[in-house]
Every structure is written in structure tokens, then in C-alpha cells.
């Protein structure tokens, strides 16, 4: 068990190492190498909660690109993460197993991190949420296309697999659910890190930017936008703490949904406060905006999760509390 001081020190180390790598190598810096040197696979195995919180918050805050999400999924379904094993992620906004096996054929479609460009194998979870199976195909059997999209630096790949079905093993339904839950928490932490950073950019701009003879931070309209952004960020962080203290698919799903809502709220207010400069490529704000747009769809968007949760509440005719004192 890591105590609070160790956690803070570890977080500072990870943030420092990522910042150092980005300063030296820019967007070409290999953050996966940085994380490997910091012992990411071991920490993920030993202390997954801390590992995910610290690493993904740091990635979000630095707008750094890594492929650590693959390791989160692989380890959550009980396998050994490897740098040459990529994961087929569900399609944008979805979270069901991305593959289907029909007789001898495997058909799958979804997204992948940049690891798909260098990996030897692709892990594909097939079937339904209640009866998932897990197999690996040579990466050569997959059609991997770099996604430019809104955020070319995110490293996302669009992946399509149409191959002879590999040997698959039965996966417990709970294993896929917990992989989705852990991945949702990871992405939500990344969005939280990015959201805090967007707020900090807007906050420092508001303090420095002078109009009508005073810093715009003195105008109540500006202050209230930043206050609402902070409320959103803190609510997200509270749901992430809840997802950690009461780990289950529901608390993780809600944390991911809150992350989507928060990113939208924070980006909207901060963009407005940053005004002209925030609308340029030169200012870092736009990179966070674009990254959160890309992350919002991984393992379920806020809209899809809210709809899914609402359907279940209506089907069961219950609205249970998920956390207790």
C-alpha cells in the first residue's frame, strides 16, 4: 500500500519525467519509453489504482501521448502486458467487445493506440458483453490506418480485422467489465488532468490580460466562468475517488460520463476566457481541447453512458445510491 506522501512524490516524478521528455523531444518524444523506465508495468501490476491515477492524470496534464491504455486493458483481463501487444479498443463511443466470430471468421472493428503501428500482435475481445472471448491475431492480419481526425497527435488508429478466427479463450464476463471499468477510469483521469490544465491556462491568462485598464480576472462574468469550470473539475475528481473507493462497473461508468461533461464545460468556459489567443494554434489550449474531444469517445461517450444508465434505472425501476459515508 502506497501512502499519501509516496503517492505525491511518485506523481511529481512522473510529471517531471514526462515534462522533461516533452521539452527535449516535443511531440516526437517516446513517452512509453519514459513510463517503462519509471517502472510503469510493475506499478500497474502491484498498485493499479495508484498507477492509473498518477500516470493518466500526468498524461492528461502534459497533453502527452502514450499507449499505456493497452496495458490497462490487458492486465485487467488477467494477461501479461507486453510492449509488442496492442489492444483492439471498441469503436468510438462504444464499449462492447469489438470482435465477432462467425464460424471460422473473425471480424472486428475499432480503434487502437499508436502501439498498433509497432506491435506484433493484436488482442481482440470478441462476442457479447455477457459471453466474451479473447484471442490474438498477428498484426499483419489487421488493417491499421492512422487517424488524423481532430487530434493527429493522439496517435489513434482505426483498425479493421477480417481473418481466420484465431484460437480464443473464454473470458469471464466480469473480466471484460472490469477491463472496461479500469479503462474508463484511466481515460477519465486523463481528461481530468487535461481539464485542470485548461483551467490553469485560462486562469493565468485572466490574471495577465488587461482590458479596460484592469486584468480581466476582475470581471465577474470571467470569474464566474472559471468558478464553474473548477466546480466541474472538482466534481469529476470526486467521482474518480468514488470509483476507486467503491470499484465497480457503475461507479467507473459514471466517472467516465462526468469526465465527458466536465471536459465540455471546462473547454467551453476556458475557450471563452482565453478568447482570441485561445483560438490560435500557437496557444497550448487548443491541444487540450482537441485531445479531450478524442478521449471523450473512448469506452463510451457521456451521452451513450447516460442513456445506458438511464435505461437500466427505468428497466429496474430503481435509482440506488452508489456510495455511502
Amino acid at each position: 500500500m502506497i501512502d499519501a506522501d509516496e503517492r505525491a512524490s511518485m506523481a511529481a516524478t512522473v510529471r517531471g519525467a514526462i515534462a522533461h521528455a516533452l521539452a527535449a523531444g516535443g511531440q516526437d518524444a517516446d513517452i512509453d519509453v519514459v513510463l517503462a523506465k519509471l517502472g510503469w508495468p510493475e506499478i500497474l501490476a502491484d498498485e493499479p489504482d495508484d498507477a492509473i491515477d498518477i500516470v493518466f492524470s500526468a498524461l492528461g496534464a502534459a497533453n502527452a501521448t502514450a499507449t499505456a491504455l493497452d496495458d490497462v486493458v490487458v492486465s485487467a483481463i488477467g494477461q501479461q502486458p507486453r510492449a509488442d501487444l496492442a489492444v483492439l479498443l471498441p469503436p468510438f463511443t462504444a464499449w462492447g467487445p469489438p470482435g465477432r466470430i462467425d464460424a471460422d471468421d473473425l471480424r472486428a472493428q475499432g480503434l487502437a493506440t499508436g502501439r498498433a503501428a509497432t506491435a506484433r500482435e493484436l488482442l481482440v475481445v470478441c462476442g457479447t458483453e455477457s459471453e466474451p472471448r479473447c484471442g490474438r491475431v498477428p498484426i499483419a492480419d489487421a488493417e491499421v490506418q492512422a487517424v488524423r481526425g481532430v487530434d493527429p497527435d493522439a496517435g489513434l488508429r482505426a483498425v479493421r480485422v477480417q481473418a481466420r478466427a484465431p484460437d480464443t479463450s473464454v473470458l469471464e464476463a466480469a473480466a471484460w467489465q472490469s477491463a472496461v471499468a479500469l479503462a474508463r477510469r484511466a481515460v477519465a483521469h486523463q481528461i481530468a488532468g487535461a481539464s485542470r490544465e485548461m483551467l490553469e491556462l485560462a486562469r493565468s491568462h485572466a490574471l495577465e490580460r488587461v482590458q479596460f485598464g484592469r486584468p480581466i480576472a476582475r470581471f465577474q462574468a470571467v470569474r464566474h466562468r472559471l468558478a464553474d469550470a473548477l466546480v466541474a473539475v472538482e466534481a469529476l475528481e470526486a467521482t474518480l475517488t468514488a470509483a476507486r473507493e467503491d470499484p465497480n462497473p457503475d461507479t467507473a461508468a459514471l466517472a467516465k460520463a462526468v469526465a465527458g461533461r466536465t471536459a465540455h464545460t471546462v473547454a467551453r468556459h476556458c475557450q471563452q476566457v482565453l478568447a482570441g489567443i485561445g483560438f490560435t494554434s500557437e496557444h497550448p489550449f487548443q491541444r487540450f481541447l482537441k485531445r479531450t474531444l478524442a478521449l471523450e469517445g473512448l469506452f463510451g461517450s457521456a451521452d451513450e453512458i447516460v442513456l445506458d444508465v438511464g435505461r437500466r434505472l427505468l428497466a429496474e425501476r430503481r435509482a440506488p445510491t452508489l456510495v455511502e459515508l
Partner: peptide
């Protein structure tokens, strides 16, 4: 329903 539940959960967690 889902949206209200989401807000109540975030509030309760906080």
C-alpha cells in the same frame, strides 16, 4: 433520468 442520476452521483461523491 440518466442525466439527473449522474449529477446526484457526482454530488454525493463530492
Amino acid at each position: 433520468v440518466g442525466e439527473a442520476y449522474l449529477q446526484l452521483h457526482a454530488l454525493r461523491a463530492r
